[in-house]
Nucleic acid binder design. Sequence first.
DNA 1: AGCACGCCGACT
DNA 2: GTCGGCGTGCTC
Length: 801
Amino acid sequence: MIAEVIVDIAAYPIDKPFDYVVPKEMEDIVEPGVRVKVPFGNRKLLGFITEIKDESDLNIVKLKQIEEILDITPVLTKEMLEMADWMKNHVLCFEIDALFAMLPSALKAKYERVIRLKDRSRLVDSEAQALFEKREAIPLHDVTSMKLLSILKKYSEEGIIEVETIVKQKTSVKKERILTIQSETEISKLLSLLSPQAKKQKELMDWMIGHAGEILSAKYVLESTGVQPAVLNAVIEKGAAITSMEEVYRDPNIVDLGDHSVPFQVTEEQAKVMDALMKEKDQPATFLLHGVTGSGKTEIYLQMIQDVISRGKEAIVLVPEISLTPQMNSRFKSRFGDLVAVMHSGLSAGEKYDEWRKIQRGEVKVVVGARSAIFAPFTNLGVIILDEEHESTYKQDDTPRYHARDIAIWRSQYYSCPVILGSATPSLESYARASKGVYRLLTMKERANHHPLPAVHVVDMRDELKNGNRSMFSVDLADAVRKRLERKEQIVLFLNKRGYSSFVLCRDCGTTVQCPNCDISLTYHRASEVLRCHYCGHEEHVPTNCPECSSEHIRFFGTGTQKVEEEVSKLFPGARVLRMDVDTTRQKGAHEAILKDFGDGKADILLGTQMIAKGLDFPNITLVGVLTADTTLNLSDFRAAEKTFQLLTQVSGRAGRHDKPGEVFIQTYSPEHYAIQHAKNHSYEPFYRQEMMARKQYEYPPFYYLTLIQFSHEDLMKVSEYAGKTVEWLRQRLSDQSAVIGPTAAAISRVNNRYRYQCLIKYKKEIGLTETLQQLIKMYRTEWLKTGLYMTIDMDPSTIM
DNA sequence: AGCACGCCGACT
DNA sequence: GTCGGCGTGCTC
């Protein structure tokens, strides 16, 4: 019996199945999808069996044997193996990268090199003797002395010791000691034998009598009685309880926001949507659910899932980043209880692994999670939902560069189940597909509770400046804030911070302090009083004089949330402010805590960045202020207008969701821009039409597909040379239907002392593109890589900056 | 990717 | 004479 194995090395010549002989005793256990430990060259590697066959094309005597099987049941399903095969061509990644993307990181291998003693009698060196005094094997990592290392090297050649690779799983199953308490009569008997000095043991046994026959965790017993572990061990030793180790799940403890969700009475619009969904509930159809903020998309999801579960099937719900939307999370938990697993970046590797196993074992029916949850190992999917489908976080920005939407559609075809893409502001791509009938368009124009959408005011900050207001609050917004503070209503202030963090600027010569390794300004971090580069991590102290002109007029500039917070407390003394940004949410559970405090009315103002734009739903929010709408607008990216529109619409939707009417102020330096004007009017369709015209004119998606190829090299001449060479090479091979743009220097032209260039392929239909690009990769891997050039290909870039 | 094999310069 | 530099080639 022969097994085809994909091994744990992401490199061009290794990216194919290798044949191994299956030892007789393993024949019953091996099957595609199990992880194995295999010899590879002179080392040991983890690998995945992808196929079992009777014969190999290679000479059987050359084949090595599988050394160990790491799973009793396969970790990869047949579906995943098929999906990996499709994925590697679709996103141009190595098969092993695709496979690992589908599994929790806990199942990756941890490699450890160990020196094992073979022949103690020939161990003559005293240092080496000391090393192996008590042990037969020691981790190679522990040997740091160069002298000892060279002695060991000699021993290894003489066969006295042997270097061995240990393949370990990163995180394992958590086990807990479980006690089965004996019967009352049994314990009483033991009590009578107890020495009178053993007061603590008596105390514990007395407690146990009250819990006779129960099965409890050792941890629980210790906590309830307060005795020392040694006392418990003594009592167990005497036979008062039987112990065993049992597998337990780590508890990612979800904050219950007290939002006990019951199915709502659906509105007429919702009922129509449900009807349409039900008609094709076992078709591999993709629906685009376009519903204004507050129209009750979540309720649609919940009822759809309810139906799916009742038919014995499973559901995947993707949210942009679950730890950012605890309200959604809590709503699913309260509706479906233990049938829900959560998967998000806030969980530890162990917690993720446990949630994954719950899914694999069929103990849960619903998974709510971020991007990677799209690979949840369900085997009978009934629906896949992508909430806020326009979010760019659904696209992975490093290998494998997949888009969760594409994976969702692939899986929906495999299981013949629907995909629901939900958004108040669909991506142009999805809306265009829906318009063409590729997706089914479902629309909800009204808020479920019939409350009107908030009134949006656009404030021209140029006028403010003219009138001598240099603060970041316009007169109108400041007035509106004061009014809410008086009325004890809540306010959300949104700072559109991307690409606009604080930097240090010299007021005399205009110099900003740059990173020495990258072509970008350093960011000022108030907490640690340092300047940091977000690309390479370089750190330096804040200078007291300008590095260029030595002027003392150098200070940090820009509008970070901290700065806004200061201004708020100056402008509105007494207002209680909660700040939510990367700094205040670094700790686990901090998001939930901040939102809970705000929901409980412990603050008047919630101040934050992107992360507060979504999912907030508190009845007392009646005012939303967008301090700077322009920052995303000015990005040199073809999606800048779309992103701005989406963001403004999302934040606006936070106001007046319940009984009290809401109001929104958008401050901007370009009030006439169509993205801002359409956001003001809550009008998606007109925005869509206008943006589509721009995309058509400039030949961008959804009219053209994009492929972005990026290059980097320490030598500026080399990058530009290879980028140019690539562009030429591609132009020769691609049809005249496609355009190759570039080469151009990247927006950030240097990162970590490597110069960056890029080129862009625009195409409508290019039949041999994948093959051509694979040839390019081959050329890069075999020839260019040696010169120090790096190249990456993104088949569907979320940004071309 | 990592490691062995292999052919040329500065040291005990 | 040997130790070690990293070019090249292979891994079932």
